[in-house]
């Protein structure tokens, strides 16, 4: 009963209109803004062409935010992939209480970012934190580490982000693992494949498509991650060392009130992602992605 016709379009229209006005239009409007010098609060603006972009080219703070953003996103993506896949393989095994463990392990992803950040700020607190207590009493470190100081803030941020987001990878991979027919493993065993060969020739090829899409989504979302990073910058005095591009765009707009410049940073981010995603598709999209 795939009915031809207008009623279908009418049913979709409200949702579509909302999506267009509240997401697609703002992206276009953001591009328009980036060509203007505009104060964030007042309704006036001047057309400046590509001046905002040209300014960014010679802006050391912009380049620094790009460098920090790349360090942050690449390291968190790699770590959450490794941890997420390993955890998925582990939780795919059968053991007592598996369902409860599966549920608990997903919690970091489901709780508000602000809670994730404050609880890690408490865990990593340099005076009363549990982590420092552990490190000092195990003799790994002589004195408590200042996790929010200049040298360690990036590591702390990466730790919190990986903790918060590896369950996404875990969830995606685990769901795929469960859909691999067990007969394939039986067949491989009869064919003489040991555990390693079964992982390489049965499991891994089946995971290829889910890893492809997971890496794509995680990369987009880590590169544009704002709330975790922003909340980590609050207090501690080392904000500068984790100022990624999204944070820089925010600061430009809401602290310096340069909405045009802030939009330019966001648009640069957008085009970098489009470019990276296109390259990624071109390089890795095998003929048997399904």
């Amino acid at each position: 009963m795939q009915t031809r016709g207008l009623p279908g379009l009418l049913l979709v229209l409200p949702a579509l209109l909302l999506l267009v006005t509240l997401t697609l239009y703002p992206v276009g409007y953001g591009f328009w803004l980036s060509l203007h010098a505009k104060h964030s609060l007042f309704p006036t603006q001047t057309f400046v062409g590509l001046d905002n972009y040209l300014y960014l080219l010679s802006d050391p703070e912009f380049w620094e935010s790009l460098r920090i953003g790349l360090i942050y996103s690449v390291s968190t993506i790699v770590l959450q992939l490794v941890l997420g896949v390993a955890a998925a393989l582990l939780l795919h095994q059968s053991f007592f209480g598996r369902n409860i463990v599966r549920g608990l392990v997903l919690f970091p992803y489901m709780i508000p970012t602000v809670v994730a950040v404050i609880l890690w700020k408490w865990m990593l607190n340099n005076q009363f934190g549990l982590i420092n207590f552990g490190l000092v009493s195990l003799g790994i470190s002589d004195e408590p580490i200042n996790w929010f100081g200049r040298s360690y803030i990036m590591i702390s941020l990466i730790l919190v982000s990986v903790w918060q987001f590896f369950p996404f990878v875990l969830l995606a991979v685990l769901a795929r693992l469960q859909s691999i027919p067990t007969e394939l493993y039986d067949a491989a065993r009869v064919d003489g494949a040991g555990p390693v060969a079964r992982f390489l020739y049965v499991t891994l090829p089946q995971l290829a498509s889910v890893l492809f899409i997971t890496i794509l989504l995680r990369s987009i979302w880590m590169f544009t991650k704002f709330d975790t990073v922003w909340l980590m910058t609050q207090g501690g005095g080392a904000e500068r060392y984790i100022r990624t591009m999204p944070v820089y765009a925010y600061l430009r707009t809401f602290n310096y009130y340069e909405a045009g410049m802030g939009s330019a940073v966001a648009i640069v981010m957008f085009f970098m992602l489009v470019g990276a995603a296109t390259t990624y598709f071109f390089l890795f999209r095998g003929e048997d992605q399904s």
Partner: peptide
Amino acid sequence: AMVFQSYALYPH
């Protein structure tokens, strides 16, 4: 050698 009900061919 075994032939399975669902054939169990390696899809890739």
